[in-house]
Nucleic acid binder design. Structure first.
Length: 606
RNA sequence: GGUCGGGUAGCUCAGCUGGAUAGAGCAACAGCCUUCUAAGCUGUGGGUCAAGGGUUCGAAUCCCUUCUCGAUCACCA
């Protein structure tokens, strides 16, 4: 029997079995096969067994039918101490692994405090992840929530895969849209502040952005009544002209405009900070477009000198992307002002100077696929080592039952309101169930916060990022079934059992007795548990938090079934009781780790 | 029109590096709390995996065609 737990894991087990299969085939048919031909996967739950070998690839070698071949290989494999028994269904050889192998595997997992994650070392590659990227003229909404949750979770998953991660944000703090809310506040605000109005700063500024739009539309309507065409009216409305002149003043560094800009941006930032904090996301480094766009212009001019870009007669600067099968792209307007692309080049320049980036990931919605395709080409041409392989982590829209969210039509779901609602509902649910009686108000509120946000986050993260998803405010707030609270509940229940065990004076050892006779349910749980590191690795490789979410859900479902059918504390066999406690404890730990990779907390009671 | 994504149960979603009878949750119906937290467990019903063709021992999965929904192709960001 093995003693060195730490060297034995699921991969080693599969490898060992693979080698045994190769040996068996060699013995039976005198041919050595490549390990790639040996397909071993977890047995489907409706069949008996733990691991299944697909024998179809070996039929040409055995020159026999699938069933006979499977039977022969199965019999040969029982020579190995690992294979306890087998059964054959069609061309599938189902193998039952000896229970002591599972226990040995479990003890290895138990001893690994950082199970499922790889350590970050000095030599780890550095990944920079940009996410959130808000405009400072309106509060965050449901679309931003998906972005923020995906971005943050992606960072956690990458860290768990042993990468150094720098979480970054680019704040869109300049431009005509910002001037619109500034202008509206100046004209209609009467000096209103977050303090005087009691509104969160980002909401206050957002209200003036809306106010601008209302007044602007009224002016356009008036002009059209005076006989102007719609196009003319839209261009000539006095408010728009004023906003444009304000932008010019801003660019010229006009003291008064800059002061107003600073003040209102600060309001927005403190509002955003509150929302970010509540969402549980954060950044290591924040960039502001107002400081990066100048670097962008400089970098574009540098490219112009090197001949990477070209200038048209009107003075505008362009990139010709014909060799990439794309069109031409504007980088600087004729008047020398920058566009979106220019700013991203500038931001990249600053980042490049400050960090030794191995991989740059942009978490931005899929409506910008083209933009990032172009950005990648341009950065590569400008000599950024990571430009060519930059990753656009592109995700789908969040749609409402009425269709897409549109800020102008007031159909956006506000981030703060949504969190309020989720937490409020969570509190009602727990009060109805009456499980938190005896806890302090602060503790109850904290649990409601954890569950409400858990429901929201899990709901969004369990979906494949690249797909559009539907959010129905009435139906999506659910706490039963495949939800965050379902998973959190299981964690809380395990904690409860462990508390009771501690109260009963049970001291848990570091390892389980490997001579135990386990049920298939228990060994299946170990098998599923053992798969966690593979899932984390896959989630990292595919940039998919959803894989973690779905894995944890499956694990929890399986555990709940076990919990229902087996008693833990009342088990009379002491060694078995200890094993079940250890198993529960480790599963709780994996739930906690998995959920933390999604940015979701788990409560110890609920 | 070009490019890129989607289309799986009434609804929301898994499964997609080809493997067994396509899975969950919600909703509906039927059971299970004097027993470790019922936010749980068990069961029933519900499918032409958009359609057609191809590759193969085997296709929801890979390839081709068609239909369909969305995004994008801006001197907006």
């Amino acid at each position: 029997m093995r003693n060195i737990f730490s060297e034995y894991n699921y991969c080693v087990m599969i490898n060992e079995l693979t080698q045994a299969v190769i040996a068996a085939i060699d013995k039976l048919y005198g041919q050595s096969v490549d390990s790639k031909m040996v397909q071993i996967s977890a047995t489907k739950k409706e069949f008996e067994g733990d691991l299944t070998l697909v024998v179809f690839p070996f039929l040409k070698i055995s020159k026999k039918g699938p069933e006979d071949t499977a039977k022969e290989i199965g019999e040969a494999l029982t020579d190995s101490p690992m294979v306890a028994k087998f059964n054959v269904i069609k061309g599938f050889l189902n193998l039952s692994i000896a229970k002591n192998y599972w226990l040995n595997l479990f003890n290895g997992i138990l001893a690994d405090d950082a199970f499922g994650t790889k350590p970050v070392t000095e030599n780890s590659p550095l990944y920079m992840v940009e996410y959130s990227s808000p405009n400072t003229n309106k509060p965050l909404h449901l679309g931003h929530i998906r972005n923020n949750l995906l971005g943050y979770s992606l960072c956690k998953v990458l860290e768990a895969n042993g990468y150094k991660v720098v979480k970054t944000n680019i704040v869109n703090d300049r431009g005509i849209h910002i001037c619109k809310s500034m202008l509206a506040w100046q004209k209609f605000g009467n000096g209103e502040t977050p303090e005087s109005s009691g509104k969160k700063g980002d909401h206050l500024v957002g209200d003036y952005y809306v106010k601008f739009d209302v007044e602007y539309k009224a002016q356009v309507k008036d002009l059209m009544a005076q006989g102007k065409s719609e196009e003319e009216a839209k261009k000539e409305a006095p408010l728009l002209l004023e906003a444009q002149s304000m932008l010019k003043k801003w660019e010229d560094g006009d003291k008064e405009v800059r002061e107003l800009w600073n003040m209102m941006n600060q309001w927005v930032y403190s509002g955003f900070d509150e929302t970010y904090k509540r969402l549980g996301v954060g950044f290591d480094k924040i960039y502001y477009e107002s400081t990066t766009y100048l670097d962008g212009k400089a970098k574009v001019n540098e490219g112009l000198e090197k001949g990477v870009f070209y200038k048209r007669e009107d003075g505008s600067v362009w990139a010709d992307l014909a060799e990439n099968g794309l069109d031409e792209k504007l980088l600087l307007r004729a008047d020398g002002t920058s566009v979106y692309m220019t700013q991203d080049i500038g931001t990249a320049t600053q980042r490049f100077n400050e960090y030794a980036i191995d991989k740059m990931i942009y978490v931005v919605g899929n409506e910008q696929n083209y933009h990032f395709q172009v950005l990648s080409i341009l950065l590569d041409r400008l000599g950024f080592s990571w430009g060519k392989d930059l990753v656009h982590f592109s995700y789908g829209m969040v749609e409402l039952p009425e269709g897409k969210m549109k800020s102008r039509e007031g159909t956006v779901v506000d981030a703060d309101d949504l969190m309020d609602e989720m937490v409020g509902t969570a509190k009602e649910v727990s009060q109805e169930l009456g499980k938190l009686d005896g806890l302090s108000e602060a503790e109850i509120d904290n649990i409601a916060r954890i569950c409400g946000l858990g429901a929201l986050k899990y709901f969004i993260l369990k979906v494949d990022p690249r797909k559009n998803m539907l959010f129905n405010p009435k139906e999506s707030i659910d706490f039963n079934g495949n939800t965050g609270p379902f998973i959190q509940y299981t964690h809380a229940r395990i904690c409860s059992v462990l508390r009771k065990a501690a109260e009963a004076g049970i001291n848990l050892p570091d390892a389980a007795d490997e001579g135990l006779t386990l049920s298939d349910v228990e060994s299946n749980l170990i098998q599923n548990l053992a798969n966690f590191p593979t899932v984390v690795a896959q989630a990292g490789a595919e940039y998919s938090p959803a894989l973690i979410a779905n894995y944890v859900y499956e694990l929890v479902k399986q555990y709940n079934s076990f919990y229902h059918d087996f008693s833990i504390l009342k088990e009379e066999n002491e060694a078995l009781k200890v094993f079940r406690l250890l198993l529960s404890k480790k599963i709780a730990a994996v739930i906690k780790t998995g959920m933390s990779l999604l940015g979701i907390e788990v409560p110890e009671r609920m």
